[in-house]
Design a protein around this nucleic acid. Structure first.
Lengths: 219, 219
DNA sequence: TAGATTGTTAATCGATTAACAATC
DNA sequence: TAGATTGTTAATCGATTAACAATC
């Protein structure tokens, strides 16, 4: 059970382990070995055991892992045991899509409010999430101290908004604008969902299709 | 100028190079060195030159790179010189968000149609993109052979739809459902945009904040 | 020409995989 | 007990960085 210096590669596999274990649990599976997990997920058993070992000893020799325990441990590592709250900045189409369809609770978050500048929207609510005026941003955050802000607003306003959020103590930003967001102070965690990068990458593989039988996981 | 076996790490940096060069070009910058690029983008100069060298020799000793030329080369590598077409499966909130706000053309794609099962939507259009019935999917694809399909539909229908798409010859899938999509035949390129994975990752870093001064790029 | 910067080869660093003793 | 499978250490593989000759 070490600490510190766990690579981003490892961290990005954790959500996949979690979701895989969710499915096992739903299917009523009680125990799983790293070998079987590897086979099903397309990882090596070594990698799976190595990954887990950064965080603790969750298995048992000769038996494997208890699905429910392992799932809970990983959920815990991902911070899901505490409930964290989020606010959304920008309640346009993308914001609405997330409010209506995304299961925040399954990731351990509660979305408590959205903010927008459009007077038509302000005062309404989507799925119990009130849409408030951007003018109320600072006072709301001061009163409710949400953990993260979700940026679903037009890209040109990002820098300004990010600074406002940092100034009033938001700890994390989930950034859906296709903008860099370097301005964020370094004590803020930023996670980018960059549609452009993603589509451009797809475009590359489309144009440069591996023509041999080789294919598989480009991660 | 080698070929084949270019790692996914390299490929995923290409969109970032492209967008950085776009900005330089907009700013009227004519030449750039790998050193200056590295400083601004947070990469080493070595890495940048190494990355480019997989695809060709775009620079000139003692001078650096011509911004416009380099930009065009990278756009080319990403397949942007050909126009490719896309269809959208599922025209709900997320689909609408993409239709209204995402600049497909800037990634070298044209979105030509969306499909949905909702009779209220069928026959309407969003930004000139017609919304057609899912029943017309096969005939439309046969007639127009779009390169990629964008999956913005509820997750439970993904497997079936993916198979239909594969069967009528779609070459790539941009998958916005938080589902695995293993079913896709291996000759199809899949790019996942997984909101859950992304938020769970943010949740990890929030819970396990590096408390030393160390921070920076977790990529 | 002298200075700058490339493309590429070699060195280093880090991540994945294999091996195996410990043990349930 | 014998068989299975862990956690971990060592070996391998791959990606990043450094160094440098080539040359604009």
């Amino acid at each position: 059970m070490k600490k510190l210096k766990i690579s981003a590669n490892v961290i990005r596999r954790l959500p996949r382990y979690l979701q895989y274990l969710d499915r096992l649990q739903d299917a009523g599976v009680v125990r799983i070995s790293s070998g079987e997990m590897g086979r099903q997920m397309g990882f090596t058993a070594s990698q799976i055991r190595q990954d887990f070992s950064y965080f603790g000893e969750f298995g048992q020799q000769g038996y494997g892992y208890n699905v429910e325990t392992l799932r809970r441990e990983i959920a815990d590592i991902l911070g899901m045991s505490r409930l964290r709250t989020a606010v959304m900045i920008g309640a346009g189409n993308l914001g609405h899509a997330l409010m209506r369809n995304f299961h925040f609770a399954e990731c351990g978050f509660q979305l408590t409010a959205a903010f927008d500048v459009d007077p038509v929207m302000i005062g309404t609510a989507v799925r119990d999430i009130p849409i408030l005026s951007m003018d109320a941003l600072e006072s709301y955050i001061a009163a409710n101290s949400p953990d993260v802000a979700i940026l679903t607003l037009p890209g040109n306003q990002v820098e300004t908004v990010a600074r406002r959020l940092a100034d009033c103590g938001v700890r994390g930003i989930w950034n859906f604008t296709n903008e860099e967001l370097k301005s964020a102070r370094e004590d803020i965690v930023v996670e980018n969902v960059n549609f452009s990068d993603s589509l451009l990458t797809l475009g590359y593989y489309l144009a440069n299709r591996r023509n041999g039988s080789e294919q598989e996981d480009r991660n």
